[in-house]
Write a protein that binds this DNA or RNA. Sequence first.
DNA 1: TATGCTGGGTGCGGTATCGAACACAGGACC
DNA 2: GGTCCTGTGTTCGATACCGCACCCAGCATA
Lengths: 254, 254
Amino acid sequence: MTSVTPRDNKLLASLPADVQERLFPHLVRVAMPLGKVLYEAGDTMASVYFPADCIVSLLYVMENGASAEISVVGNEGVVGVSLFMGGESTPSRAIVQSAGLAYRLSAQRIKDEFVRHGAVLVHVLRYTQSLITQMSQTAVCNRHHNIDQQLCRWLLLSMDRLSSNRLVMTQDLIANMLGVRREGVTDAALKLQKLGVIRYQRGKIDVLDRVRLEMLSCECYAVVKTEEDRLLDYAVSAVPDRRKPLTRRVTQRS
Amino acid sequence: MTSVTPRDNKLLASLPADVQERLFPHLVRVAMPLGKVLYEAGDTMASVYFPADCIVSLLYVMENGASAEISVVGNEGVVGVSLFMGGESTPSRAIVQSAGLAYRLSAQRIKDEFVRHGAVLVHVLRYTQSLITQMSQTAVCNRHHNIDQQLCRWLLLSMDRLSSNRLVMTQDLIANMLGVRREGVTDAALKLQKLGVIRYQRGKIDVLDRVRLEMLSCECYAVVKTEEDRLLDYAVSAVPDRRKPLTRRVTQRS
DNA sequence: TATGCTGGGTGCGGTATCGAACACAGGACC
DNA sequence: GGTCCTGTGTTCGATACCGCACCCAGCATA
């Protein structure tokens, strides 16, 4: 818990040493309790957040109150891409889905760094593209796949962003994220439990058989994961304009 | 038809004069016939396309062949944002949804221009953010709104990208875009026709009452349109880092 | 022990959409 | 004129999900 450092965020960790030296002194470690709202839809953003061990959901809330998660951000990325995209705000809400810590950076710092057109620009843009993939795939998934499959996808995406295979998350909250009824999640979760893939009890979900979970998931998880692996291959992406090999890795355990 | 110029693309038109002078000689005018595939999912992109009077759909195709449009690009934007985002490819297909002309620019030219970190970077990033809004809203719309509403949204988004209020588009194609059955579109279109909002005949759709169409649409159209207006206010966005006023304009006729 | 709250399980009718099959009409082509 | 193809209209049963209502179990608190 106290051993968390900025380098727990993979995006930060992958930046060149000189950029890290320049940036890290300005990072503020902040607690991210479950349910904390980082931005409300339309808010002008004052900072970006680099999750260390928490998960943040980007959620659209409709006029009638119904909602749907469009993407999820963990220690592989950053919350608040609109800041460097130039829009300063988005119509979505950012809310903490799994508690933990994050590092906050002021809007001006990230923009200054962005304008230098160095590694930060390259990294955050590639990350943003992976976010676009996740959003697009969510759109398709919402259209074509049933709750059972979507629950699997959601569990996998969440697990990838945590070190453990236990999620602290009620079915009601999951239903809100998926934009479906709580009962629908109950049904799907019951099926998974009967298959021995997960076990849950009052808000705690343990994934017992990840491989089977992947098989039961729709293709959307694999697409997102593959594209993430390709785009966030931070280790070698520090040189701008260097073409990445396009090989797609097979989905595998984190 | 022959009077089309690069300035018919609003993104190009809004660039500063010096950038236009540098860029325009490298633009190639290309025909965009209905159904032409600009990129297949996963293709490495060789060029970007600035639509002049055509519409391009970004489409996800699933393993089982089912598909869904995640966003639509007209003369307000550019096709191929992955090129400057750094990914070089996306898992989506880009396909011409309404025939016309576009201006093609090679991958290297756009990247060179991007690296100068001038108006082009600012413009395309803001445009990309509006694209993100469209994708996100599509995800939510797919989850929560019925075919009737989605058809209205889709017609409005398409009309905004054409000068006329006639769409040349069969119900079957629309169904592919929305990711629903053709019969579902037939039903929805029949209702709209009976209300006197549209008239159609064998692949030609005339919008007779746009105001009513907007009222019948779900909120998703207004959200996307408002955000587009805010982000693509090209006229005054040429200065990097200049903060835009955050006033939201009411949705109105194009 | 009583109470209350939260998380989860179940049942029921309603509805939107699906998959499939078929019928019909406009227009192009011979 | 006849023929064919494409675009549209219609029907029917299946199903996934919804809204609602209610119940039960675990757990904390008094």
